[in-house]
């Protein structure tokens, strides 16, 4: 009896090893398809050229504008997205699914649609923009327009992640703290935030990275002006048509940023998240 069990176990182990190889083989086409273009960009540019291009005014302007706008976008997302995420993560209410879907819409929408929609809402003749224009405020073609386009596209990533973080905190923990005399703010500050910190942080990093890559909504709503609204993706698009080297340099920078983001989110943050869960369970 034990013998046969052993044999089947060995067999199934063998099977697993075999099927692992098979799955690996079947995965190759897709993996190669994703990896080759990314490698190709690096092959086309020599490191010296890269450094030379980094000194070009258009390149430096685009980099600093991109870093500034995506950081402001992330900050605003933390401020305005956290209440929404907390609401979705900890409360059930009438119209929950409507709010939930609304948050998901920008992730599904083509960014160009978002750009047109923003123009219809906040353009000089737009729904809200017309009122602002009367007061002498015009949004399109400004730094603010870039941030708004990025916020529209990228903020849901944070809200999604934070919602999961908030939902994962056990009610009993908060109740216990409240019993011990903590007020609502203290519960939020000392229980909720630390326990959901990693989810918030990884959501924030994802939002930042997505904002950095925003193109479609930006070029439609904020236009293209070097130093004012021309972010890295826009400079790549315009540069692609005249100076391929500029486009390649900026592409390499964006690829590096994307990698850093993913490493940060996947490796470091998730590890800490796991430890966090263990601690809670203890």
């Amino acid at each position: 009896m034990i013998e046969t069990e052993k044999r089947t176990l060995a067999q199934s182990l063998n099977n697993t090893a075999w099927s692992k190889q098979a799955w690996k083989l079947l995965s190759m086409p897709m993996l190669l398809f994703l990896a080759i273009p990314i490698l190709a960009i690096f092959v086309r540019n020599s490191p010296r050229e890269l450094l030379q291009n980094l000194n070009e005014r258009q390149v430096t302007q685009a980099i600093s504008l991109s870093l500034a706008t995506s950081s402001v976008t992330t900050l605003l997302t933390l401020i305005f997205g956290t209440p929404v995420a907390y609401l979705l993560g900890t409360h059930k209410f009438k119209g929950y699914h409507i709010v939930d879907t609304l948050i998901d819409i920008p992730t599904v929408l083509p960014p160009s649609v978002a750009g047109v929609a923003l123009l219809m809402a906040f353009g000089r003749r737009g729904l809200v923009g017309a009122l602002l224009a009367e007061k002498g405020i015009t949004i399109p073609f400004t730094f603010i327009a870039v941030v708004m386009a990025q916020f529209f596209i990228a903020s849901p990533l944070y809200v999604r992640s934070a919602t999961v973080g908030f939902a994962g905190i056990e009610k009993e923990l908060k109740q216990a703290a409240a019993l011990d005399g903590a007020n609502r703010w203290q519960v939020f500050r000392y229980i909720v935030l630390p326990l959901s910190g990693n989810a918030l942080l990884s959501g924030g990093v994802m939002t930042w990275a997505r904002a950095l890559g925003e193109f479609g909504a930006t070029i439609i709503f904020a236009g293209n002006f070097p130093g004012r609204t021309q972010t890295m993706p826009l400079a790549i698009y315009i540069g692609f048509e005249i100076e391929l080297n500029v486009a390649l340099t900026l592409s390499i920078i964006l690829i590096c940023f994307s990698f850093l983001t993913l490493i940060l989110v996947k490796g470091f943050l998730h590890k800490r998240l796991d430890i966090g869960i263990d601690l809670v369970n203890d």
């Binding site: 399109p140 073609f141 904020a222 236009g223 293209n224 002006f225 609204t229 315009i238 048509e241």
Partner: peptide, 10 residues
């Protein structure tokens, strides 16, 4: 005129 330009479209 260039100082008045708000965007260079593609």
């Amino acid at each position: 005129v260039l100082a008045n330009v708000v965007s260079f479209e593609d």
